[in-house]
Every structure is written in C-alpha cells, then in structure tokens.
Amino acid sequence: MSGGAGIFVSMRPEITSALNELDATLSTIEKVMDPEEMSDRVRELEAQASDPSLWDDPDHAQGVTSELSAVQSRLRKITDLRQRVADLPVMYELGEDEEGGEEMADAELAELREEIEALEVKTMLSGEYDQREAVINIRSGAGGVDAADWAEMLMRMYVRWAEKNGHKVDIYDISYAEEAGIKSATFVVHGDYMYGQLSVEQGAHRLVRISPFDNQGRRQTSFAEVEVLPVVEKVDSIDIPDNEVRVDVYRSSGPGGQSVNTTDSAVRLTHIPTGIVVTCQNEKSQIQNKASAMRVLQAKLLEKKRQEERAEMDALGAGGNASWGNQMRSYVLHPYQMVKDLRNDFEVNDPSKVLGGEIDGFLEAGIRWRMSQQQKSGA
C-alpha cells in the first residue's frame, strides 16, 4: 500500500519535490499506523460483530462495534490518502491539456498536504488517554464582568470547533454571571482522540480588548481558565464510596437567575475528602443529572490521581516538567489583532476566525510542541 520517495520525476521540479515530500510523509505515517495490521483487526472485529451471542453482553458489544467503526474509519482515511497521492501525477498530466486543469491539481495538492499534515499530528497522540472523549471545564478568572464574558466566548469557540468537525457536544452545566457571560461551564466533546487533541488547550487564556462594559472605553485584560479531562471509562479504577460524596439537589436556572425547570432536578456533588464540587443541570431528570455529574467527578479524580503520580515520578527524577505554564495563549483585539500561543509562538492575525472555531492550527502546533517537550525530557 505504501509508496516510496522519489517516484514522481516527470513533472515541474517544484511539483515533483512537493509530491515526493507528501509521499515520504505518508509513508512514515503508514509505518506508524500499519494499514495491514488495521485490516487484520477489522476482520477480527467483524467476526466478533457477526456472532449472534455478542449482544448477550451489551457493554462488550458496544465496545466491539465502536472499535470496529473507529478502525474502519482510520483505515479508509489512510487508504484514500494513498490513492489520492498516486492519482496526483495523472491529474497534472491531464491538466496540461485542459483549461484550468493545473489549477485543480494545485488545489488538490494543497488539500492533500493539509490532510496529511493533520493525520501526521494524530499519529503523535499515543498517550494513555488520548483516544478518549474530552470533558472541558471553563472558569472565568480575573477581570470581572469582562472575564465572565470572555469565558462564554471561549466556550462558544470550542463548541463551534466541534460542530465544524462533526463532533457532538453535551453541555452538562453552565453557571451564568449576573451581568453578562458565565462564571463556569462544563461540557463533553464526543469523538475519538478528543482528549488527545484538546488537552493542549489546558491553561489560562488571556483576552486584551476595549471593554464593551466600560463606558469610558478603556482597554481591559481578562482571564479564563480551561481544564481538559479524559472521559472516564469502566476500565478506570476510580471507586467513589457513597459516604464520600454529598449530594445536593436544587432547581435549575438560566441567565440572570431565570428558572428553566420547575422541579429540583439539578444536582451538586461534593467529594468530601478532596473538596471537589461538580454540578449538572442539563437534563430534566435528577437521576440523569446525578449520573452525568458523577462522570465528571470521576474524571476530575482520575486527573488528580495522574497528577499525583506524575509529581512522584518528577520527584524521583524520572520525568520532565509536567507543567506547561499556566498562561498559554493570548488573544489581542486592541490595539492590534493577534492570537498567539505563548508556548510555541504559533500565531494568527485574525482573532475573529479563531474565536469562530478555527483553532486547528493551534491544536496541531500544540501537539507538535508537546511531542518535542516529551522527546527533550526523554518521556
């Protein structure tokens, strides 16, 4: 299935060079992803899925069908890219005799480069929890009403990114601020590798702009904190005894204290040993809200356990610096326009696009940066 560098030799030198580079990158990706092994795994899972007794254990059946769908999708992607790379020389050859043909080939080359680079980044997601779905918590920080408004802008940015990429979002809880914006929000982004991709967003996000809430039109700096956790699965050993959790129920409310539910269906869980508090009010059922809140609490406790284990390893000198620095990105709307990642210097001069959900460049730069840090530390 894989190609080999140096196979495109009959076109313009710059096109030949670009195609050889793409082919080499894709060949490296194929070595990591191993399409032949994926094909074998698909056959194994298809055999399991065709067994009539599979659904005797619904949880196991769900795991089999989910994995089958995911592996098939990845295999189709790598196969499709290899075929498109192989077809490009023909496109250029035919394009010489057709009006607009070379432009179409150039467009396909640019699109292929973008897709292959994105897939290359995904091959870097090999952490223990990278394949998981992601729980995102956003909290307003310093900056008063501007910070609350900023927290809501960040939430909208992530939701729009998810929607553009076809990922479902479930909002578990939103705590609205009195004047504008939100104090905090918790939501889940569904899909493979959501935690691996979005975990690089963790940290403090800073906004600099002319405050719309300041009648003197002064510039305001405000902060919001983003926390990204992997969704907990049944294989995770996170046991929470009932006597360690206090459960409070209350009436759900919307912006400005407006009631959105006439029953006490919202749930607040307090983990007594750690003081961690989780709320959920997105469902009308108290039972459903409690189950959702428990999943978030488990995710927070799992992350706490991981941080403690990393701290122990660091103390023994077995790991690098696990902290990437709290302030990770700056969004400047005035006096100039720029969004910049403070860890890797990746920047975009159109904040409106970034806030509209176009953050793939930042995610890829963050993942590459993280990989380089891990390699330096020997992790």
Rank of each mutant, 00 (worst) to 15 (best):
Q220K: 15
I138K: 10
Q375L: 10
R251V: 02
A318L: 12
E309L: 15
M124R: 13
V42L: 06
Q220V: 07
Q298N: 11
D248A: 07
E133Q: 15
T123D: 04
V260I: 15
F362V: 13
E108M: 05
M313P: 01
A24N: 12
S237V: 14
T65R: 14
E36V: 12
F346Y: 15
I210D: 01
N344H: 01
G95W: 12
K305E: 15
A299M: 08
V235H: 11
G217W: 09
A291S: 08
G356I: 12
F362W: 11
N344F: 01
D59R: 14
M338H: 02
L26N: 00
V277G: 02
G166H: 05
G317I: 06
Q337H: 14
E36H: 04
E103T: 07
M11R: 14
E67Y: 00
R370N: 07
G361Q: 01
V90G: 08
G378C: 12
F8L: 00
M294D: 08
S69A: 11
T221C: 02
R310L: 15
S372I: 04
Q375G: 02
S73N: 04
V208L: 09
E244G: 01
G356Y: 04
E67L: 08
T79Q: 10
E312R: 12
A70T: 10
D314H: 06
P255N: 01
E133H: 09
G127T: 12
Y336G: 04
Q286C: 03
N289D: 14
L112Y: 05
G101R: 10
K164H: 10
V64A: 03
Q220F: 06
A162F: 02
A177P: 04
M157L: 09
E36T: 08
S292R: 13
Q83I: 02
I15N: 15
F223H: 10
E93R: 10
V71H: 08
V208M: 12
A110W: 02
R306P: 00
R12W: 03
V121S: 12
L333C: 10
R82W: 00
E103I: 07
Y193I: 05
M91Q: 09
Q197T: 05
K340C: 05
V228P: 00
V145I: 09
R368S: 06
G366T: 08
M371K: 06
N282L: 08
M313K: 15
S352L: 09
A107H: 13
L75T: 11
D87F: 09
L75K: 08
H190C: 06
A266L: 14
K305W: 01
A224S: 15
A299C: 02
V42K: 06
